[in-house]
Each structure stands twice: as structure tokens, then as C-alpha cells.
Design a protein around this nucleic acid. Structure first.
Lengths: 342, 342
DNA sequence: GTGAAAGCGCTAACAA
DNA sequence: TTGTTAGCGCTTTCAC
């Protein structure tokens, strides 16, 4: 069998409680004793039994990470960061994918609650009431979502949208469209809100192009309306939609960015892979993951002082190949008209 | 506090042992009693405390899933399947990403061992000796990797490569190149081996184009050599390399598939998103994930009868837009020569 | 078929 | 500073 605290105690010539203290409350034990205990433990290859520890402390050493769809390329980077940081605090990560089914999430939380110390919840579609119930079951941090009374890490959508629109306005665009995500998506609503604010500030006309699936196919669906609307640039709900839009545009012989500028959001790996490379707003998933873990750990440590903190993380605009000024357009119409003037 | 087995016992008017039996060994208890206990437990909202159970059974209810890089689009689908199946057997999944660092894997396994009942290990680069040490620490199932004495789920590379080459040969290709993955990658070696076997069978000439990073950038690097080699079709180590190759080819004004046919492996989401869509060998990650969990669970149940099983899962070729016959090429050279003959 | 009792490995009072 | 003691919630002998 595995080596237990009793083995270490015997080998070090102390009681089990001293060993326990040496491990968990180093300053409540004589330095010399501690040193010896630690050496013996190391030498014996002792590893604490978490189940036993958890049985008494009530902590599992696990964090739950719930997300809608791991296949969505936005998440892997978040997961990686959360893991890295959790491990630093000696916590493991229990991952749960809800397969984009908001109805599955609350039951999942319930089943998970007993096996984790806290939960990081990415749930763009869950209803606020369910969100609150989930949060009541276990210390919870929301990611990319806000709800009254629940700590959260959110991307600063207003600032992000401002950066996109400022870039576009700087290029000369005065009429911009937004190809939104699913109607029930919280972040799609937030992005629209941010765009409206920024558009008003910058004197840009903003058109809603509709709601689309947050996928490449959704982007295809958005193309027709974008072309008809007369906008000179489109901000897509996310990179997948942006890429789909670019593809559909290409099929219609509309050149990007000359015929239409396109901006994505997320900076998924794909954004850099397509040609032309996608201009996109890079959501700082690393910062978000880090913040979420920190927040949760703080909560667990009893740092629930004052109102629940909402941490905002700022996004960065990566200007690449899919944006250009509307003036540089060489559409058939423009070209045809030019000679006549001569 | 949470409701415990004692609460249930009291409410049902039985002893704790009976409750325990009703829950874990249903046929060792009178049906009527069991019924009553179960109802009471349900009504009280009882959930067993896993730490307490684990303390005595030695099982954690967790499976470890170790993989090199979650950002590699090949993995999310595997992770999702593993999770779904683990949950069906009431196991949670502890995910660990090694950040492509083979040296980090063994220590990771060591730290994980105490917290899981078994490990599913995807480690294309780990040394066989380390692999065996890892497997000695905890019940282990390898994915996409073989090692003597360790149960494994592998893709049937020979059959998969045969399908690719048969398709290409059917199209008329007689000279095919392989843009391999990293030198240390087990599966790259296996794929090459499979290609050699299939090439011999089909009378196709096979050229090794070299080893490349398993990324889009790696694909870019492969373009020059592919063009110089005189092959009419290239099999890439994976879809990322294939996509990179296609892009680099496009930049050199070589049309795919008319100028050169390209085949990927993995069928990641990206493969369907690029234009033309990538012809690729779809590795059945769902089947693999399912098989891995089943194998591990079987191992845990003590089903280590006979030699460790190696389960092979077959791949399916998805013919899309990047393959065509070499005859259909309309390269500048061909076109120029035609008129002269007239 | 059921209950009483012991104990898994650990931590947290309480004494000393 | 250290040791003694009493459990945490559960499963599992061993009686009955």
C-alpha cells in the first residue's frame, strides 16, 4: 500500500499530528522538526491522501470548469490557462462540456457540486435565475457573463467595440454593420450595446444585420444581407462568422477588404490561418482564465468581503488583412464610372 | 451540512450499513427495504460523499486524461467523447494539458496518480521507457500510441494509408509524396510505414518529403520540396500541414487540386472550412474515446485477463476538393505545348 | 437480510 | 511545540 502519514510519523519519531502540521501549517512546528519530517516524507515518497484530507476539511482540491462546447476554438486556450493556474495552487480541474445545451447545465452543476471546491462557469445562454441557483450551490465565478451578485470575469465589450469602430472610422468607414450571434447570447447583446455606444461617439452609422449561428455557416448566411445593406464594413459576432462571411463574399466575387471590410472577434487560431488573415479583436483568454482562477481561489479563502467583484479584461485589436478604407474600393461600378469622366 | 448516510438511515428506520448496501449492492438487500431506502434518499436529496467512499474503497471516481495540447484541434472531440462516456459510468474527468512537453508528462502522471483511478494517455512523443513507468503507476490506456504490455487504442494506420493511396492511385497518381510530422512522433512513423506498405501493394512510387512541424507553418515549409520532388500528390502528416501546404501552393500560383493533389489526416473542423475543402482521412475520435474509456473501466474492474488488449479503430476517407487526377492538370507547360502540335 | 462495530488517512480541538 | 483523542462519511467484516 501507499505510504501514509503514520509511516512518516514513525520514521521521523514524532506523532501524526506533528507530521500533519509540518505539512499544512509549517510555522506551527519547530523548524528542526519540520525539516526532519519533510526529509523523511520526501524520502519515503509520501503523498497526502486527498480523500482523507477532504473528508475532514471539506475541500476536494478540485475546481470545476463548465463550458458550452470545447470544440469552439475560443475555449481551449481558456482551459489551458485555467489549468495551469489551478495547478499552481495545487488544484485539479474537472472539465465538463455541456454540448451547447443550456438545460443540461444546472443538473451538471448539481452533480458536480460535491466534487469540487468551486466552479468556473462559462454559460453564455443560461437563464439568470438558473445562474443564480447554480451560484448558490457552490462558490462560482462566471466567465464572459454578468449576473447580479455573482463574481465574474468579463471582457470589456464597450472598450473592445470602441477599438474596432475607431479603427474602422479611422480608415474612413461611416456605415458599419454588425452580424450578431444567437439571440439568446449574452455576449452578442453586449457587443451590440458596445458598438452602439462607440458608433454614437464616433458618428458612425450602425446597422444590425441580424442574428446568426456562431459558426462558419452562420457567416455564409450573413453575406447576402451585408451586401444589400450598403455598409462598407462588417463587424462579425466572432471569428467563425467572420471567416464564413469572407468565404461567401469570395464566392460572390466580392473582394475583402477592397469590396467590404470584415472584422472578427476572438482571435482564434483560424483567424491567422485564412487568407487574407482576419483583422480581429483578440480576447485575452489567458488573462481571463488567470483572473477567474484567482477570483475563485480568493472566494474559497473566504475573501467574500464587500460586493462580488467583477473583473474586466481588455481586448486588443489585431489589424490584419481584412480591413481597408472604403475609398480604396475598386468595385466594378467605380471602375466603370472613372473612364467616363476623362 | 449536507445530508449523510446517517440521515437517510434514521429517516428510513434502518442501519447505515443497510443504506450503504441498498446503494452499492442492491441485490444483497430485501427489495422492499431497498425501495424504501432509495425513496428516502431521493427525497432527502442524498448524494454520497465521494471522499468518504474513496477513503475506504481506494477509488476516486476520477479518470485522468493527459494530452499534449488541447489547442490542437484533433483533441477537443476526443475529450468530449471521453467525458460523455466517463460520466455514464459515474466517473469524472481530470484533464491535463502537457503543453507539448514530453518531459513534463511523467511528473504529471506521478502527481495525478493518487487522484484518479486510471489514466488515458495521449503522448505521441514520450519515450517508451517513460511510458512503461507511467503505466506501472496507475492503470493506463494509451491513445494513438503502442507500447509493449500497455493496453492501447490505435488508429489502424496501415488501413487508413491504404485508403488514401488507393484513392490517389484510382485517380491516376503514380508518384506520391509524404510530408511527415516531427521526427519523434510515433504516429508520423506509423503513417509512413503504412504508406510504404500500401505504395508497394499499389505500385505507387512514394517519396518522403521530410519532417515538418505539425502546424500550418509546417505546411508552408513543405511546399518548396513538394514542388521540386515531381510528385503529383502529397499526403500530409495532418490537416494543419495540409492546409498550410495548400496556402503556400496558392501563393506560388499552383492550383489545388489541378496542379497538385493534397490529402490531410484528422478531419479537423478546419478541413471543411477551407476552400477548396480538404480531402482528408477522418480519424474516428469518437470511437477512440469510447474505446479508451471502456478499456480503462474494464481494467479497473479487474478484467486484466490475458495480454493487454490493443483496440484498433478504422479511419474513413472523406473525399472533398483537394484531390483530382494528375491528368486533369492544366499547368502552363501543358497548355503551351498543345497549340504547337496543331 | 440486517445491525454493530471497526477503521480507511487525515485534521483539529484539547491537553500537556 | 508536541502528543492524545475524536471523529469526518462511508464500506465492510462479522455476528445474528
Amino acid at each position: 500500500m501507499a505510504v501514509t502519514i503514520t509511516d512518516v510519523a514513525r520514521a521521523a519519531g514524532v506523532s501524526t499530528s506533528t507530521v500533519s502540521r509540518a505539512l499544512s501549517l509549517p510555522d506551527k512546528v519547530d523548524p528542526a522538526t519540520r525539516e526532519r519530517v519533510l526529509r523523511v516524507a520526501e524520502h519515503l515518497g509520501y503523498h497526502p491522501n486527498r480523500a482523507a484530507r477532504g473528508l475532514i476539511t471539506g475541500r476536494t482540491g478540485n475546481l470545476g470548469l463548465i463550458l458550452p462546447d470545447l470544440a469552439n476554438p475560443f475555449f481551449p486556450s481558456l482551459v489551458k490557462t485555467v489549468q495551469r493556474h489551478a495547478h499552481r495552487s495545487d488544484q485539479q480541474v474537472l472539465l465538463m462540456d455541456t454540448d451547447e445545451d443550456p438545460a443540461a447545465e444546472l443538473p451538471l452543476v448539481r452533480s458536480l457540486v460535491k466534487q469540487v471546491d468551486g466552479i468556473i462557469l462559462c454559460s453564455p445562454r443560461m437563464r439568470p435565475a438558473d445562474l443564480r441557483e447554480a451560484a448558490s450551490l457552490s462558490p462560482t465565478v462566471l466567465v464572459n457573463r454578468k449576473a447580479r451578485g455573482i463574481p465574474a470575469v468579463v471582457f470589456d465589450n464597450v472598450e473592445g467595440m470602441r477599438r474596432i469602430l475607431a479603427h474602422l472610422a479611422g480608415l474612413g468607414h461611416a456605415h458599419v454593420g454588425f452580424a450578431g450571434g444567437p439571440r439568446s447570447s449574452w455576449s452578442s447583446g453586449e457587443r451590440l450595446r458596445g458598438l452602439r455606444v462607440a458608433a454614437a461617439e464616433l458618428g458612425v452609422r450602425l446597422d444590425e444585420l441580424g442574428h446568426f449561428a456562431p459558426t462558419v455557416a452562420g457567416g455564409h448566411d450573413a453575406a447576402e444581407g451585408a451586401l444589400l445593406s450598403g455598409v462598407t464594413a462588417v463587424v462579425a459576432y466572432n471569428d467563425l462568422v467572420a471567416v464564413g462571411l469572407c468565404q461567401a463574399l469570395a464566392e460572390r466575387e466580392v473582394r475583402v477588404p477592397d469590396g467590404l471590410s470584415v472584422v472578427g472577434i476572438d482571435d482564434i487560431a483560424l483567424a491567422a490561418m485564412v487568407r487574407p488573415a482576419l483583422t480581429t479583436l483578440a480576447l485575452p483568454t489567458e488573462a481571463a482564465g488567470r483572473a477567474a482562477v484567482d477570483l475563485l481561489l480568493q472566494l474559497l479563502a473566504g475573501g467574500a468581503d464587500g460586493r462580488p467583484p467583477q473583473v474586466g479584461v481588455a481586448a486588443e485589436l489585431l489589424v490584419r488583412g481584412t480591413t481597408a478604407g472604403p475609398a480604396s474600393r475598386s468595385s466594378p461600378a467605380t471602375r466603370r464610372r472613372a473612364p467616363r469622366r476623362t
